[in-house]
Nucleic acid binder design. Structure first.
Length: 493
RNA sequence: GGUCUCUUAGUAUAACGGUUAGUACAACGGGUUUUCAUCCCGUCAACGCGGGUUCGACUCCCGCAGAGAUCACCA
């Protein structure tokens, strides 16, 4: 198999959100599968949109997801620098090569004049193409242009419009006519290259043989093809990735739709395994009915031609479902001890002074109802602090309210006695005791256990009662039961 | 408007001319000696429309409709 050398080339204009991280995932998978290279290149040629700290955010996101780059910032593989802003001289040199070949020209036309061309064409309802307005001065010989050129004057490509055909790994065989090929800007007034030009040069110099990007670049592809041709360089594999759509409407998911950053999901307790799994499978599948994939499985089974060629709607509910699956999978496979460190930072404040051993016990009985790690905050508070005492909540519970208050106090008293006299406080003895209690009182489990459960937790739900009591411990359990019993007695007087 | 792309249940998808159109999420119902969840079982629900080709079309061809992308000195 040919080694795929590819790249992720984001612009440092903000965080990576889930709408665009997929264009890092697929190239990564393709590169790893073929034992090739995954390069990170920062496309910071637009000074106006540059955002301080964005590069770090991008790097952070990739690392968290496990998409380590083989070459890029902090990891020079001999093809650097990996920031386009540091490669300015290279682009200018390559633009000059095109001028020498008579395939580019310096164009002093100012933007107001260009706008009049556009307006005129629009008024006449003919498609605007700059090459129809190409200035006559460019009849200057390439030598003359080269002598005169300096930053401040943009350099334009001299289009070679003709029918073009190409193959896209996702979209299949494509074609375009001359009407979409134009004299695109190569070097801007500020001396920096446009994306259209910079990526062609960089990809070539970095030996990149696969380019994956959003479908929005599809319509510019003929211009890129012309550029490859003008330089005489082999075109890389082209991969167009359909957009991820916003939950509502038919728009591509963007920050305006509230597209959360990947790091935000991280803070919310989503596991990188689940994030990667979900996004990889949003618009790709291997033809089987498998849903849960590890990164290694994805690398093994990934194939470009099975990427869906229409947009896929983002579904957070399914992501969270998948996250729950991953939590359970990892705990089952690795055990609580190994999984436990991942919960760091997700416990309620009340857990601060409790040791790891106790928190692991709590995790052990609660993990199978977590959708995200941050659910721990809401779901485990009563293990660490006395719950908010709210007798009304107990009384209006749909099971407990079947009892009179007198019956409640009676049952609580029986439970307290039974538990107090346990020789050993563990899940086994508790289970037996609770079952005995059930038999002795002829109560329905839903009623009796809800009474006890709510009395010790005041939570809408909790793990199985025997497990909960076991973790809470004898002292705490009995104290909470007594407190409720006393309150009920007072109420009855 | 020009050019290009896309179109299976609410959502993500499977099907390489012959299936009762499969799976997952969601929804709904049920089961597991407690609640919520997990787990298990079940129900609902789809081939955009119209023509062809063919014994037979979700699948191939042609129209149409709808949706999206693009037409920058942004990427």
């Amino acid at each position: 198999m040919k080694k795929i050398i590819t790249r992720f080339a984001p612009s440092p204009t903000g965080y990576i959100h889930i709408g665009n991280v997929r264009s890092a995932i697929y190239p990564y998978l393709a590169a790893k599968q073929s034992d090739g290279k995954f390069i990170l290149r920062i496309e910071d040629t637009d000074q106006a949109r540059f955002v301080e700290g964005a590069t770090e955010l991008i790097e952070d996101t990739l690392k968290w997801l496990g998409l380590e780059w083989d070459e890029g910032p902090e990891k020079d593989g001999g093809n650097g620098p990996y920031f386009q802003s540091e490669r300015k001289a290279i682009y200018q040199e390559w633009a000059k090569k095109l001028i020498e070949k008579g395939r580019a020209y310096a164009d002093p036309t100012d933007s107001d004049t260009i706008q009049t061309y556009r307006d005129a064409d629009n008024a006449q309802k003919i498609p605007y193409l700059y090459r129809n307005h190409r200035p006559k001065e460019t009849d200057l010989s390439p030598e003359e242009i080269l002598i005169n050129w300096s930053e401040g004057t943009p350099i334009r490509f001299k289009a070679d419009p003709k029918p073009r055909k190409w193959h896209d790994e996702v979209m299949g065989d494509l074609h375009a006519g001359p009407e979409v090929q134009d004299d695109i800007i190569l070097i801007k007034k500020d001396g920096l290259p446009t994306y259209n030009f910079a990526h062609i040069v960089d990809d070539f110099l970095m030996d990149i043989n696969m380019v994956a990007r959003g479908v929005e670049y599809l319509s510019s592809t003929p211009n890129y093809l012309a550029l490859y041709e003008a330089f005489g360089i082999e075109q890389p594999l082209l991969v167009s990735l359909p957009h991820i759509l916003a939950p509502q409407g038919n728009k591509k998911l963007g920050k305006r739709d509230g597209a959360k950053s990947v790091t935000e999901y991280r803070k919310d307790g989503v596991l990188p395994e689940a994030m990667l799994n979900y996004l990889a499978c949003l618009g790709w599948n291997d033809g089987s009915e498998q849903e849960i994939y590890t990164k290694d499985e994805l690398i093994k089974k990934f194939s470009l031609d099975r990427i869906q060629n229409s947009g896929a709607r983002y579904d957070e509910v399914k992501l969270l479902w998948m996250n729950g699956q991953w939590i359970r999978k990892l705990v089952t496979e690795q055990g609580i001890d190994k999984f436990y460190p991942r919960t760091d930072g997700f416990w309620p404040d009340s857990a601060k002074n409790f040791d790891d051993k106790y928190k692991k016990q709590v995790l052990g009985i609660i993990y199978d109802r977590l959708k995200t790690l941050s659910d721990l905050r809401e779901m485990t508070d009563y293990f660490f602090a006395d719950p908010k005492f709210d007798i009304e909540q107990l009384l209006k519970n749909k099971f407990v309210k079947k009892l009179s208050e007198q019956e409640m106090t009676g049952l609580l008293q029986l439970a307290i006695e039974k538990l107090q006299n346990l020789p050993d406080w563990n899940a086994e003895t508790l289970k037996t005791a609770l079952n005995d209690l059930l038999a002795e009182t002829s109560q329905k489990p839903a009623v009796l256990f809800s009474l006890i459960r709510i009395s010790v937790s005041f939570a809408p739900f909790s793990p199985a009662l025997d497990l909960t009591l076991n973790v809470l411990g004898k002292e705490v359990s009995l104290a909470r039961l007594n407190k409720v019993k006393e309150a009920l007695l007072l109420d009855q007087q």
